[in-house]
């Protein structure tokens, strides 16, 4: 059920003309960004690393906006009531949607790499190609679970959109998607350590340039599972509240 739900939601999301336009353009921009930021270094590996980092940023953006607004979106489509009527825990109903935003975001990772290869001739020589694939899948799943926590907490906030906007860049930075965490001020380290994005990005980087991939993958998964559990509780509360305040449908 989770698998079919994810696939169909990914289909629904990726067929939106708006998403499509973004999905075409953003990866090119990201590949370009990656190349120009690191041209000075000009080592092939730094370029690939940057392209991967940029791709992960794309996954994060997709999850942040997609999952943060997931419940609101379903409400606008009038499908929220229909899915909440399922005799299932709310978490099982919403998780496929947030994972789907991760899956559509993963496309941006692939596209960034592809454009990097096509336009700038970045060689895709990963140190651990198999580990890279696994880490990418885990990263998408993890962000999906993190997205669930976002989805359930954002509906409780009035200004969720503004919050989503302010979260986009800081998390790119803090999780070390763009620049290594080591160059960031020390106070960001604890924040980085609890974000699944940090560990996901790190696992991908390690798979790209060499390093112990699996510990990062493990930590990333563990943190996401915690997010999943917290998100699950939050959602149960949200559902009950929505039934009391009549906010499942558009008023």
């Amino acid at each position: 059920m989770l698998l079919l739900g994810t696939l169909l939601h990914a289909k629904q999301i990726s067929r939106s003309p708006f998403e499509l336009a973004i999905a075409m353009i953003v990866p090119i921009v990201q590949a370009t960004l990656a190349v120009y930021l690191f041209r000075s270094g000009a080592e092939q590996h730094r370029l690939l690393e940057a392209a991967v980092g940029a791709g992960v940023m794309g996954v994060w953006s997709s999850v942040l906006f997609g999952s943060g607004g997931a419940i609101q979106n379903q409400r606008w489509q009038g499908t929220l009531e229909m899915i909440m009527l399922a005799p299932r825990r709310p978490v099982l109903v919403i998780l496929p949607i947030t994972v789907a935003t991760g899956v559509t975001g993963a496309y941006s990772l692939l596209a960034t790499l592809a454009w990097g290869r096509l336009l700038y001739g970045i060689r895709l020589d990963f140190v651990h190609p198999a580990a890279f694939v696994v880490a990418a899948v885990v990263c998408v799943l993890a962000l999906g679970m993190f997205g669930l926590l976002l989805a359930s907490t954002f509906v409780l906030l009035r200004n969720a959109n503004a919050l989503a906007n302010t979260l986009e860049y800081p998390i790119w930075l803090v999780s070390g998607m763009l620049v290594p965490i080591t160059v960031l001020p020390a106070w960001t380290a604890p924040i980085a350590a609890v974000l699944p994005t940090t560990w996901g990005a790190r696992a991908l980087r390690e798979a790209t340039t060499g390093g112990p991939v699996w510990p990062s993958v493990g930590i990333c998964l563990a943190i996401s599972l915690v997010c999943l559990i917290l998100g699950g509780f939050a959602l149960t509360y949200v559902e009950r509240r929505a039934r009391a305040t009549a906010t499942l449908a558009l008023a």
Binding site: M1, L4, G5, L8, K11, Q12, R15, S16, Q77, G78, T79, E81, M82, I83, L85, A86, P87, R88, V93
Partner: peptide, 19 residues
């Protein structure tokens, strides 16, 4: 209340699974 960008069949498959 339907998933517009999915086919009728996909809509039914999804809800069959969900329900």
């Amino acid at each position: 209340g339907l998933y517009e960008r999915l086919s009728g069949l996909d809509n039914l498959r999804y809800f069959a699974e969900l329900y």
